Amino acid sequence: MLRWLTPLLIALILTAAGGPAWAHAELVTASPRVGSTVPVPPSEVRLSFSEGVEPHFSGMEVTAADGHSVTAGRVQAQGAEMRVALARGLPPGTYRVTWHVVSVDTHRTQGSFTFEIRP
């Protein structure tokens, strides 16, 4: 009896341990880069995530140090990328990017980072 029971138990353990791994859409790259200093005001902020995001449930806002929004237009999301245009002629200073996404597997993640414009 033990001769067939041992392989069966091993198969059950391996099957249970090998279930699907549900990941979250994590920020992979950003332009401007997280914590960077840029000499010229960027025309947009572009974020790339580790998996696709749901456009209707994801968003981003870019604000100046005083808290005012500097975005110009709607956030665009397609696949694993999200971007938003910025107001023209941003003055030197520190800007905060705050984002939230719902991945295609319905997990929500969020975060924020800053970049600086310094000629």
Rank of each mutant, 00 (worst) to 15 (best):
A77D: 03
S103V: 03
E44P: 00
H107V: 10
P91A: 15
F49C: 01
S48K: 07
H100W: 15
T15S: 15
S112C: 05
T37Q: 07
T63R: 14
F57N: 12
S31G: 08
M1N: 02
V38N: 07
A25D: 02
V97E: 05
A77W: 04
V53P: 00
A21K: 08
R118V: 00
I10G: 02
T71G: 08
V40N: 10
S43E: 09
R118N: 10
A72E: 10
T37C: 05
V45D: 03
A64R: 12
G79V: 05
A21D: 08
G111S: 12
G18P: 02
H107F: 14
V40H: 09
S58W: 04
G93F: 07
V84F: 01
T109Q: 06
V62T: 14
P20I: 11
G67I: 13
G52W: 01
S43W: 00
T71M: 14
G52Y: 04
A23Y: 14
E44Y: 01
L86C: 04
L12E: 09
P39L: 05
S48N: 08
L86D: 00
A23R: 13
T63S: 12
R46H: 10
D105K: 02
P55S: 12
R3T: 10
R108D: 06
I13T: 14
L27E: 10
L86A: 06
G93K: 10
Y95Q: 05
E51T: 05
G93C: 09
R96T: 15
A17D: 09
V34S: 04
S69W: 07
G19K: 04
H100N: 09
P41G: 00
T29Q: 15
L90N: 01
S103F: 05
R83I: 02
R96W: 02
A72C: 00
P91F: 05
T29E: 15
R96N: 08
V53T: 03
E116Y: 00
V38Q: 06
G79M: 06
A80P: 05
R74T: 07
G89V: 08
A16T: 13
V104M: 13
I13G: 08
M82Y: 01
T71Q: 09
M60E: 11
A16Q: 13
A87E: 15
F49K: 01
T71C: 15
G52R: 13
G52D: 14
E44I: 00
P7F: 04
V45Y: 00
E61N: 12
P7N: 09
F115H: 09
P7Q: 08
R74Q: 13
R96A: 11
I117T: 05
P32E: 03
H24I: 10
D66L: 11
